[in-house]
C-alpha cells in the first residue's frame, strides 16, 4: 500500500512535469475545453470535431458535455469563463431559441464567433400509405377532410417546432394542426403506428424507414436539396413557397477573446471540417459540412437571431 502510494506520487509528478514542459509557446499552452450542449448526435459530432481539431493544435481540444435546459446551462458556463480562448462552446441556433424563450439572460452577443462548421436540415415525413407525395397534397387533403393534422416535433419553442410552425403557416394549416411534442427518437414510431399524421425531425431518424418504404420523406426545409437525400425535394418544391430553415452548428468563445486565439482555433476548425473523416461522418450521421470563417459566421448568427425572434414573437413563444 505504502509502496503503491509512493509509486503513484512519483508517477503523477512525472506526468505533471510532462504536461507542463512545452510552456511559453503561443496559444494554446494548455488544453482547450469545448463545451457540448446536447447529447446523442450533437455530442458525437462535437467529439469528432474536437478530436480532429486536436491534430492541428499543440494541445488537445477536450470535449466536455454540459447538457441541460436546451443548452442554457452550457452557454452560461462558457459565458462565465475567462475570455482567453481556452473555453469554447459547440453552439447552434439554440442560443437564439433559448434566449428569446426566456431561458438565458444574455444573447448571442455575449459570444465571439469562431467558425461555422455544419448545418443540419430538418425533414418532414409521413406514412408511405398516406397517399401524400407533396406538402400540397397533404394540405389539400387535410383542408377537404376538415380534420386536424397531427404533426410531431420536439417541445414548444424548440427548433423543430419553429420549423414546423413555419411550414404550417406557409401551407395555411396553422389553425388546423395539432403540434404533438415528442422527445427526439420517438417520432418515427408514432408515425408508423398511425398516431401521428406527419413528423418533422432530423432526417437521420427517417432515412432507414424511407428506404424501406414504410415512411416517405416529403421534403427538407433548406433552400437546396441535401447531399444525404438527393432525391428528396425541398419544401419549396413541395409546395411551401419560399423556405430556408436550417440549423447551423459552430464554435464560439466568450466575447472579448483575443483575435489571435480565435484565428488559431478557426484554422484548426477549418482543417478538421475539411478532413475526409469529417465528411464521411457527415454522410452517415446526416449533416452537411458547411464551413464559414468567424466574420461570415457572426453575420449569420445575427441574421438568424432576428428571424428566430420574429418567428417566436408571432407564435407567442417569446418571454415578455
Amino acid at each position: 500500500m505504502q509502496k503503491g502510494i509512493i509509486a503513484s506520487v512519483a508517477l503523477s509528478a512525472a506526468m505533471a512535469v510532462g504536461l507542463c514542459a512545452p510552456a511559453r509557446a503561443e496559444f494554446p499552452e494548455k488544453p482547450v475545453e469545448m463545451t457540448i450542449l446536447f447529447g446523442s448526435t450533437a455530442q458525437t459530432i462535437g467529439q469528432l470535431l474536437a478530436e480532429l481539431m486536436s491534430r492541428h493544435l499543440p494541445q488537445p481540444v477536450v470535449p466536455v458535455a454540459r447538457t441541460g435546459a436546451g443548452g442554457a446551462v452550457g452557454y452560461q458556463h462558457v459565458h462565465g469563463t475567462a475570455p482567453d480562448g481556452y473555453n469554447i462552446v459547440w453552439n447552434s441556433n439554440s442560443i437564439s431559441t433559448v434566449h428569446h424563450g426566456g431561458g438565458l439572460p444574455f444573447d448571442y452577443t455575449a459570444f465571439a464567433p469562431v467558425a461555422k462548421i455544419s448545418v443540419e436540415v430538418p425533414a418532414i415525413a409521413v406514412r408511405a400509405d398516406s397517399g401524400w407525395e407533396t406538402l400540397s397534397d397533404m394540405a389539400a387533403d387535410i383542408k377537404s377532410a376538415g380534420r386536424k393534422l397531427k404533426v410531431g416535433a420536439s417541445g414548444r419553442g424548440s427548433f423543430t417546432h419553429l420549423a414546423t410552425e413555419a411550414i404550417l403557416a406557409a401551407l395555411d394549416l396553422s389553425d388546423s394542426a395539432i403540434h404533438v411534442p415528442y422527445d427526439q427518437g420517438r417520432a418515427p414510431v408514432e408515425l408508423l403506428a398511425g398516431r401521428l399524421d406527419a413528423a418533422l425531425q432530423w432526417p437521420g431518424q427517417f432515412v432507414s424507414h424511407h428506404e424501406a418504404g414504410t415512411l416517405r420523406i416529403l421534403c427538407v426545409t433548406s433552400a437546396a436539396r441535401i447531399s444525404q437525400l438527393p432525391d428528396v425535394p425541398t419544401c419549396a418544391e413541395s409546395g411551401a413557397g419560399e423556405m430556408d430553415i436550417v440549423m447551423w452548428r459552430g464554435l464560439a468563445a466568450p466575447a472579448g477573446t483575443p483575435p489571435e486565439a480565435i484565428a488559431r482555433l478557426e484554422e484548426a476548425a477549418r482543417l478538421a471540417a475539411e478532413s475526409e473523416e469529417f465528411r464521411k461522418a457527415a454522410q452517415t450521421i446526416g449533416f452537411e459540412v458547411e464551413f464559414a470563417g468567424h466574420e461570415a459566421f457572426g453575420e449569420l448568427i445575427a441574421r438568424d437571431d432576428t428571424i428566430i425572434a420574429d418567428l417566436m414573437g408571432q407564435l407567442g413563444l417569446t418571454e415578455q
Binding site: 446523442s40 458525437t44 424501406a212 414504410t214
Partner: peptide, 29 residues
Amino acid sequence: LGIPGDPATAILLSGLLIHGLIPGPMLFI
C-alpha cells in the same frame, strides 16, 4: 426501428452511425 429507448442506447446509436451502420429496417437487409 432506429429508436433509442434511453440515453445509453442513444449514444450507442450515434456510435453505430459513425461507422456507417444506420439502425432501422434497412439494417437487416
